[in-house]
């Protein structure tokens, strides 16, 4: 009995999750496996962004489900925001039990050190609360939004050749996802919440694109846009923070993004007729 208890305690200790590190450097960012850039960027009020991913040694991402990649336990991802100097670095980690945790690190004025931001964020400089992290990252099939078949497109072959991603359907390797710019913009900026499977499915605005069914998801998006094109454009253009979309992580209207969506809506009159 004592042996069993000891084994249980040792097992529990092995799986205990340490608290979030106080400093960014302690998250392991220096040992990241690769840097990456998604095809379609999330608008962040003009901030420059850099992104990195870490996979534990010997592990790979299982892409058998092309739109819900299975990241190994221990995966980490970082996204660094700069406006003039470094402002913040956001951090996502997959824990041993398969759950994910989220944090943000705020850089000091000298840009020499980044410390863990409080759970409520730092609204004055746009650092989100942990609840706001979840608001976007929990709405999609996988919380890492920028590292997916749709977002990596032309990079898929290289990632597969490097052995970082396995089980990609051959059709995707031969013909990587390539979206119309307007659809790509809506996917990157709206699709993580506005999709058919997440908590906002009832809103009936499906803007996420699927690598497994690109034509169907594009047509579905255009159909759902048909019913509310004016409202979508009004919200994208609005400076009213209570009306504008996306509601999180941005306060400035993205004129270039609005133009991409306008162009999409003007170029697809047939699909967009109610």
């Amino acid at each position: 009995m004592r042996v069993l208890l000891l084994l249980f305690l040792l097992s529990a200790a092995a799986h205990a999750v340490p608290p979030l590190p106080a400093r960014l450097e302690e998250t392991g960012i220096e040992g990241a496996t690769l840097a990456f850039t998604p095809q379609h960027a999330l608008w962040s009020d003009g901030s420059a962004k850099r992104r990195w991913l870490y996979l534990p040694p010997g592990s790979t991402i299982d892409a058998a489900r092309p739109d819900a990649w299975e990241f190994p336990r221990g995966t980490k991802a970082w996204k660094q925001f700069s406006r003039g100097g470094r402002i913040e670095t956001r951090f996502i980690e997959r824990l041993p039990d398969g759950s994910w945790r989220f944090a943000a690190y705020q850089w000091n004025a000298q840009g020499s050190q980044a410390l863990l931001a409080p759970p409520e964020g730092v609204p004055a400089v746009g650092i989100p609360s942990r609840a706001d992290c979840l608001a976007c990252h929990e709405g999609a099939a996988v919380p890492i939004l920028g590292f997916s078949a749709v977002q990596l497109g032309p990079e898929l072959k290289r990632l597969a050749a490097q052995g970082l991603v396995r089980n990609l359907p051959p059709a995707l390797l031969e013909s990587p996802p390539r979206l119309a710019p307007g659809l790509g913009y809506l996917h990157a900026n709206c699709g993580h919440c506005h999709n058919d499977a997440g908590p906002l499915a009832g809103v009936e605005l499906a803007l996420a694109q699927r690598a497994a069914a690109p034509r169907e998801s594009a047509e579905r998006s255009l159909r759902s846009l048909a019913a509310r094109r004016d409202d979508v454009l009004r919200r994208l253009r609005s400076a009213n923070p209570y009306v504008r979309m996306p509601p999180l992580g941005t306060r400035v209207v993205d004129a270039d993004g609005v133009a991409l969506v306008e162009s999409l809506l003007q170029s697809r009159p047939k699909e967009l007729s109610p």
Partner: peptide, 19 residues
């Protein structure tokens, strides 16, 4: 949905992720 409602009250955001 129930989730939309619960998350609105818990997070203070419309449907748990909006304004």
């Amino acid at each position: 949905t129930q989730r939309n409602f619960t998350e609105t009250i818990r997070t203070g955001r419309h449907m748990g992720r909006g304004r």
